[in-house]
């Protein structure tokens, strides 16, 4: 018996389901407007640039640079108690949108704006894969 999964679970919507399904295949999928080709995240029904509701899903390269971060020391949720302190990085992806996740295996003293990172994947539950980051190889 594995330990119970205590972390919050996402509730995918009709708008975001392809994102979560993509993660199961270890791919970061992003919405791109079918009309003006603007990439957007988090998933939502309308393009903010041209207001089209037609969308294509593209696979992100997974490469990006640190925009900012925090080091979480106090566990505000029981599911994260065992992993504190952990780094939460806000990352500019190459595709022009941001994604936030934990940046693993890096000394907080080495953190800086612009640090090159890449996505890795973690199997959270049987049905849930989450994206994480590591320093780019």
């Amino acid at each position: 018996m594995s330990d119970p999964y205590l972390k919050p679970l996402p509730e995918p919507s009709i708008d975001s389901l392809p994102y979560w399904e993509g993660l199961k295949d270890r791919r970061v999928m992003l919405q791109r407007c079918s009309d003006c080709r603007t990439v957007r995240h988090y998933p939502r029904p309308m393009c903010g640039e041209c207001h089209s509701m037609e969308v294509d899903w593209i696979e992100a390269s997974g490469k990006g640079r640190v925009y900012s971060w925090t080091v979480a020391h106090h566990p505000f949720h029981i599911g994260f108690k065992a992993e504190t302190p952990y780094i939460l990085a806000t990352v500019d992806l190459e595709e022009g949108v941001r994604i936030q996740s934990q940046l693993l295996d890096v000394d907080p003293a080495d953190m800086k704006i612009g640090l090159a990172v890449e996505v890795i994947f973690g199997q959270a539950t049987d049905d849930l894969v989450l994206p994480y980051f590591r320093v780019a190889k």
Binding site: P8, P10, S68, L88, S101, K112, I113, L128, L130
Partner: peptide
Amino acid sequence: QISEFENPIGAIAPAQLYAPMARRHMEL
């Protein structure tokens, strides 16, 4: 949107959500 995309990876409380704003201000 925070609940769906940020809570699952450990960004839960205002202190964690707002801290990156302060960190960037400090760095810049």
